[in-house]
Simulated assay, not measured.
Amino acid sequence: MTLQQWAVDLAQIVNPENIKTKESLKKYTMTKLGGEADIFVMPETEQQAQAVVEYAYTNNIPLLMLGNGSNMVVRDGGVRGIVINFAKLDTIQIDGTRVYAQSGALIKEVSKRVAAESLTGFEFACGIPGSIGGAMAMNAGAYGGEIKDVIVETVVLTSKGERLVLSKDDLELGYRKSVIAKNGYYVLSATFQLEEGDQAAIDAKIADLTYQRESKQPLEYPSAGSVFKRPPGNFAGKLIQESDLQGKGVGGAEVSEKHAGFIINKNNATASDYIQTIEMVQRVVKEKFDVQLELEVKIVGED
């Protein structure tokens, strides 16, 4: 089956305006890196999303979920098959202390909306750049809070396109892991349980966390955020800093001088530059401290 045939078939499912062939993924990733997707699809409803997943499975076409692109590095050769993006599934609904959000809603937008309703428990997410779908998959967290503290249930699609409702216990949430990532599920929506709070206290906490983030993280450059998981009993940034790697890198990629846990696209880096910089950091830290840094970011696509 040809690329053109995929596009024709998908146009029976999704508005043709939301289907693009040979689409550069640089504009969809926070690193501003990556080659082209054979087909890039943005469904507008959960039914369309389900139909696209079923189509890919039935026709044995590789399918990659790309959320807000904040935790993903796409190689320069791009991605074969279909890349699906749920950015148009971005509904947020608040009912008392219960919050429903679709996969494509930005987690920091949810944090902003619930804070405006004097709900507490989601302040930790005020600066996380990802989508709800990505946050669910990796149990996103920051500043002492994480998704597993507030999640009630989530609705997902299996790789076959089957719809499942998973409770908190079903999700197997741990440090940067979940059953969603393990089984390759696609998140459609999530429901959270928050608490009524004091507006002044909520605003003060968000202001403090925002200051901490902006003062310590290199937000002025494209990056994938925190590249490495926290090693047991230590901090990746600390080990990288003590390895004297800040300011060093390959090509246009560089270990941030502001925060050693970040690798930035400082000067028109390629994905190859970025990945080689990651590998250099892993190699040096392993040699110096005998610690193998594990990736928090996901590397996808072809060279």
Rank of each mutant, 00 (worst) to 15 (best):
A137Q: 02
E109I: 09
G81I: 15
I299P: 05
G174F: 04
T154G: 03
E294C: 05
M138Q: 10
L293A: 11
L119D: 08
K32G: 01
R98K: 12
K258A: 11
A271R: 01
A207L: 05
P16N: 11
L245H: 05
L194R: 00
Y143D: 06
S167P: 01
Q4M: 12
F228M: 09
N265Y: 04
L166K: 04
D38E: 15
T29S: 07
F289N: 08
G69H: 11
Y175W: 03
L171Q: 00
A135P: 06
I240P: 02
I151F: 09
V291Q: 07
P62A: 14
E220V: 10
N18M: 10
V187M: 01
I202L: 08
E54C: 14
E46W: 00
Q48I: 07
I84H: 04
G145M: 04
Q102I: 08
Q50H: 08
L66F: 12
S272M: 06
G233H: 08
L245M: 07
G247A: 10
G81N: 15
N139R: 06
I13L: 09
A271N: 02
G252D: 05
F86V: 05
P218M: 10
V285C: 01
V250N: 09
I147F: 02
Y57C: 15
A201M: 05
R98Q: 11
F289W: 14
S189Q: 01
K32P: 00
R213K: 14
